[in-house]
């Protein structure tokens, strides 16, 4: 028996509303995302399943540090270190406290880098991951101190360091002290290196300024995500300086590979496997086979 309701006229606003008045279906904003590169509308769930890579064009979406750690390390292996370091506005720079509060709300983190011990493919590592949601990963004294402490910890524990960089550079609001973090972190990297320990950096979009000119470029092995901008001076600064448009692809990861400044470009969904292989190849061997 047919129900009457089947023949009712549509009332729902998503359905037909008369001549020439088809409305776009309204869906909750957080179900879909638009790819900044190819402009396709994508199901958010699908993007998440693909390690936050656009399934259509391989664009690597900005990825918050905690999510990245979850994607990268062995389940439940991450133990955070030095989470209690908090920035202070020592210069009394105008608007800095508000900027910090906004960044903390946006990222849900107290500062721009998360550090800790973890396992990748069963191998223990010290790990730092910078957060693009925190003033675009800018490096102030907390970022410098946390990374320095991580390298000191790794040297002491004889652990390799895996570091993910994303940064607009040194943080202006902490003035010269931000600049000094470049020297401080590089010193800690050098002592770790001199102890014969492995450091792998993964450069993500964008890595620029004082971070490029310090620990980002100091890895034994330097990897980059596809199409990531990696620069000392960002493209806009250069265009302003030389007053001409930059060629397409300039300062992208592929360009750096061609010029000899990165070892390999590795997509996000194969980084775990790649790093596991790197770690395996750095285990002591040659003990003889039975």
């Amino acid at each position: 028996m047919l129900k009457k309701s089947l023949f009712r006229k549509p009332k729902n606003e998503l359905e037909y509303q008369g001549e020439g008045k088809v409305q776009r279906p309204s869906v909750p904003d957080d179900l879909y995302v638009s790819c900044p590169e190819c402009k396709q509308t994508l199901l958010k769930a699908e993007v998440e399943e693909h390690c936050f890579i656009c399934p259509k064009c391989n664009y690597h979406f900005k990825l918050q540090a905690r999510r990245r750690i979850r994607l990268l390390v062995d389940n439940n292996s991450f133990q955070e270190l030095n989470a209690g370091l908090q920035p202070v506005n020592w210069l009394e720079f105008p608007g800095y406290e508000e900027k910090l509060t906004a960044a903390q709300q946006k990222s849900g983190e107290p500062e721009g880098v998360i550090c800790g011990a973890a396992q990748i493919g069963g191998y223990p590592v010290a790990l730092f991951v910078m957060d693009p949601a925190f003033i675009l990963g800018s490096m102030g004294t907390v970022v410098g101190e946390k990374i320095t402490r991580l390298f000191e910890y790794a040297t002491q524990q004889r652990l390799p360091v895996i570091g993910y960089t994303v940064s607009g550079g040194a943080r202006m609001q902490e003035g010269i002290l931000s600049l000094m973090q470049m020297a401080k972190t590089s010193g800690a990297v050098k002592l770790h290196s001199d102890a014969g320990l492995l450091y792998v950096t993964v450069l993500t979009n964008p890595t620029t300024g004082g971070v490029t000119a310090s620990f980002a470029m100091e890895g034994d092995i330097i990897l980059a995500e596809p199409r990531a901008v990696v620069a000392f001076a960002g493209p806009r600064v250069i265009e302003q300086t030389i007053r001409q448009k930059l060629p397409n692809g300039f300062q992208r990861a592929e360009f750096l590979l061609e010029k000899g400044f990165v070892d390999a470009i590795v997509s996000r969904n194969s980084q775990r496997e790649y790093l596991t292989t790197v770690l395996r190849l750095h285990q002591k061997g040659g003990a003889g086979r039975d």
Binding site: A216, M217, A231, F232, I238, T241, L246
Partner: peptide, 16 residues
């Protein structure tokens, strides 16, 4: 800050 400086690794040179 220029094309040649970036091509030849300004950031890497300073870091080193």
């Amino acid at each position: 800050c220029g094309i040649g400086a970036e091509e030849r690794g300004q950031g890497q040179a300073i870091a080193e």
